[in-house]
Nucleic acid binder design. Structure first.
Lengths: 343, 343
DNA sequence: TTGAAAGCGCTAACAT
DNA sequence: ATGTTAGCGCTTTCAA
């Protein structure tokens, strides 16, 4: 049988209350007793029972705060679905979720959103935000105050976080290159690369991985042009159209961001006189449509729904497990999707 | 606040015990009271609290029985990992798992295995077994006795089951064809198809989907030969070698089963003088090696780990939810994997 | 600083 | 057939 608080209490000659307080760092317990209890718990392999804990915490359930830059960004739809699913599933284990949605990646807005979540009484945070000094500092503050912070989808170097949930962007690029290599038997590749937003670290990594892998495979390629779509449909379309006009020899397009794909699609359709091989990233409604219509040849996806689900699951783990337990990252798979996937 | 047993009891003017019994069909409660309670529970949107239930059921935890034909079949390794993972995760929610492993698909053995699980006191079953009348009847018996039966990986037409967890084999074949189409720009395909076992319905469906999709895409192809590897390395190797000898023009191989892939690899390596495009199914250790070595071009996988995990999760749901709740199937994704996936 | 005890939602044993 | 109650593991008051 598994070891319970009662067992520990008996073994230590103290009451269950004391054991509970010691194990949860409630600080109204002497260092000596606490140490003894913790040690014993360790050696006996005590692992708290979720059901018991959940039941007890039923009235004052703990809340997870989530920040997403998801306003007008369909990519986040599936992440939100995953969050909802997990929220529903963990509700009766004493968990609540508060979601704050922002439009875009403005640092001020993101900082304000974090404060709002904090005021709502959130006990843990999942942030999809951007590489910036003030944000990094704010995250580190939260961590130091004992709040678990999870970074979602976009990693922030130097920020203290319990774990990262998201894709391996470099590998995503490598996989796009690997596929391209398989599909372009010997043909010389004249490449157009469409980037997204400067602040998003992932898009850069994707391109790096992409080029790296093309080289490693000794593909015959040349990057004819690289444009920035700023994750915006219209800008993406204009930039792509212009690149096609200036470099009609472009025969392959790699778009390293999911946002702005409508613009890419429009540009490709407007230039259908030339056959081009097109690779996109991330599965959103428009992308699916374009793959179905054979405008885009394949997409490298990143399991957004799983990301949403795992975000909640991981933070739940943080709140339930004893402080300082190691929580592993969750790196989603990079999935190649082609037309039959969407039919 | 969510509605509890106590709320229902108060509203109905009965005791919590009666409500619990009514909702769990304990049959020592009058049809009249029971009906009234159920109706009220429905209209008030009562949903049982997992934590409470788990805690209460702690001592006599219910056991899930699983049958896998996994002996000497590395494909099941990842399924088992998923089962282990979920087992660990649901342990403190009052769930136990009993796994019985058989070698191959022998009907007698599978029937005996089911009986063994039943004797062990299992309350629900997950079966990975084969299309056969006696097995179908046995499954229907179990269902009629009120045991939830889940079919894992291989569906059995006409068997009453609460849900199916596994791949869409037809789609798996379609996706292989879609990829092949992308990779074989115009080249005429001279195909060798390697089947697995007759009793496995899925392999047949894969080939159907594969050919269907090639036709739908107007690919220029011809099935030069179809061989049966009987999910065995040596037979697969011999059959493949012979096909290559008789039809040296074969330039593409589609293997619709995961087992026996070592044999396929050996045959390809022995015939390296000719360049052939090779598609395999299912991710096992050997397959990964062969993809890394560029012997196999790509694999269509089926998330075995997720299948294992979801099997436990779904059956847990069956045991926890009120009788007769609808449990949805879980169809895993068909994943295309290429070399960078394994590096 | 610590112990005792109530209570979270549910089931099952016991009583009626 | 139904009511009453103990107890599952845990946290959190309330006392001491």
């Amino acid at each position: 049988m598994t070891v319970t608080l009662k067992d520990l209490a008996k073994a230590c000659g103290v009451s269950v209350g004391t054991v509970s307080r010691a194990l949860n760092d409630k600080s109204e317990v002497s260092a000596e007793t606490s140490g003894k209890i913790k040690q014993l718990a360790q050696s006996l392999g005590y692992v708290p029972n979720r059901a018991g804990r959940a039941l007890s915490a039923q009235k004052n359930l703990s809340c997870i705060g989530i920040l997403l830059p998801s306003v007008n960004s369909p990519f986040f739809d599936d992440i939100k679905k995953g969050i909802e699913e997990a929220h529903h599933e963990f509700k009766d284990l004493g968990l609540d979720v508060a979601l704050v949605e922002e439009e875009g990646w403005d640092v001020e807005q993101h900082l304000a959103a974090i404060d709002r979540l904090l005021k709502r009484g959130c006990k843990a945070f999942a942030l999809c935000t951007v590489v910036d000094d003030r944000l990094r500092n704010r995250i580190n503050e939260l961590s130091d105050e004992g709040y678990p912070v999870l970074l979602l989808n976009n990693s922030i170097p130097g920020a203290r976080h319990v774990c990262f949930v998201g894709p391996d962007y470099r590998k995503s690029g490598q996989i796009a290159a690997g596929m391209l290599d398989k599909c372009s038997q010997g043909r010389k590749l004249k490449l157009l690369i469409v980037m997204g937003l400067k602040v998003h670290n992932g898009h850069k990594l994707r391109v790096e991985g992409f080029l790296e892998e093309l080289k490693a495979r000794h593909c015959d390629f040349e990057v004819v042009s690289t444009v920035e779509g700023h994750d915006n449909d219209i800008i993406t379309q204009q930039a792509t159209m212009q690149a096609f006009a200036e470099h009609p020899e472009i025969n392959t397009v790699y778009m390293a961001t999911g946002s702005g794909v409508s613009g890419l699609g429009a540009a490709i359709i407007a230039n259908r006189d030339r056959q081009r091989f097109v690779i996109a990233c991330d599965e959103i409604y428009t992308t699916r449509e374009l793959v179905r219509g054979d405008i885009i040849d394949f997409v490298v996806c990143q399991e957004p729904r799983v990301q949403g689900y795992q975000t909640i699951k991981k933070l739940h783990e943080c709140l339930v497990k004893p402080r300082g337990s190691h929580i592993s990252d969750y790196i989603v798979d990079s999935l190649i999707k082609i037309r039959p996937h969407f039919e």
